[in-house]
């Protein structure tokens, strides 16, 4: 285990700040889907990079926790690597890429494919916490609409999608009704992941740093995606499998491999994909040059990220 940098408080934030954020988290858990304002702090990375999620993580992380950070489902992307390194430095906790080993998972854009258990906490980084924002620009009015459960405009937006595109075109950050009371923005996860939030055995916390809001979905809470009777909610599907591991049940990313139109479709969840490959599953392009190169790159990047290198 890396020794935690004694020059900073455990978890970077001072004790009073952590206390304030924990109180906001407790309130959020008590009122599922309700956005609790909190006094967001400046963090040593820009807004939009996950300052909200980091503050939540920093407030609830303990020395025995095992942290996993993903961005777009992958452990090897810049945002994930830098946040993981940040926490290793300011807390000294063990970090991992394996979903099953982690006790805390900070995420941007995805819920891991591997089902999470009751002893795990999922922390989302949220850019725009207000689901009503695009229909109603005034914060005073949106708060009043939440207070009165005045949610007709959410369906106006969905109606508009169907009338313009023939279907509900919203593919990410798809609005949900939490616990039958609050409409909530699930952060920019693909709607593919929405069903995983419903009645989940794990705690889900959402932190928005710029907007200074924290909200939560406690375990075993109903999370229902909004829809119409004749245009029911449905998730994305692909008519192909992951080119590297052959999974047909995961969310696929398109990766351009050369400038001649070559492309691969691979799992966005890099740990899930690597796990399946280690277990002997093979996708249609796993043996091709491009497939081999891609999988080698992913392994190399994550090895580097998990190394003991100084930041």
């Amino acid at each position: 285990m890396t020794q935690h940098d004694s020059g900073v408080t455990f978890g970077y934030l001072d004790e009073q700040t952590k206390r304030m954020i924990r109180r906001a988290v407790l309130k959020a858990v008590a009122i599922p889907g309700y956005q609790v304002p909190f006094a967001g702090r400046e963090m040593p990375l820009p807004y939009g990079w996950g300052t909200g999620g980091i503050q939540v993580t920093a407030s609830i992380i303990g020395p025995d926790d095992v942290l996993k950070v993903i961005d777009q489902g992958a452990d090897d992307t810049t945002n994930a690597v830098s946040i993981r390194r940040f926490f290793r430095r300011v807390t000294g906790v063990r970090t991992t890429e394996h979903t099953t080993e982690a006790t805390l998972i900070q995420t941007r854009h995805r819920i891991p494919e591997t089902p999470l258990g009751p002893d795990q906490i999922l922390i989302y980084q949220v850019p725009i916490p207000e689901p009503l924002r695009f229909m109603e620009a005034r914060e005073t009015e949106t708060r009043r609409m939440h207070a009165l459960a005045d949610y007709g405009v959410m369906h106006v937006k969905l109606y508009e999608d169907i009338s313009q595109y023939g279907r509900i075109a919203k593919a990410y950050d798809y609005p949900v009704m939490v616990n039958g009371r609050y409409v909530m923005a699930p952060s920019p996860i693909p709607k593919f992941d929405n069903p995983k939030m419903h009645d989940a055995p794990f705690l889900q916390l959402f932190g928005a740093g710029r907007e200074k809001r924290i909200y939560a979905v406690p375990p075993h809470t109903s999370v229902v995606s909004l829809d119409f009777e004749d245009h029911p909610f449905e998730v994305q599907s692909w008519d192909r499998v992951c080119d590297l591991c052959g999974a047909d049940d995961s969310y696929l990313d398109e990766v351009v491999t050369d400038d001649a139109g070559g492309r691969l479709f691979v799992c966005s969840d890099s740990d899930y994909c690597a796990g399946r490959r280690a277990a002997g599953h093979e996708g249609p392009a796993a043996a091709s040059a491009a497939g081999a190169a891609l999988s080698e790159t992913m392994t190399a990047v994550s090895r580097e990220a998990d190394g003991e290198g100084t930041p």
Binding site: D150, G152, V153, H155, Y159, E160, S163, D227, E229, D230
Partner: peptide
């Protein structure tokens, strides 16, 4: 959508 807003606000859910 403008005309549909009132029905939707009081629970109409059939597009």
């Amino acid at each position: 959508a403008n005309i549909g807003e009132r029905p939707m606000a009081v629970g109409a859910r059939h597009y």
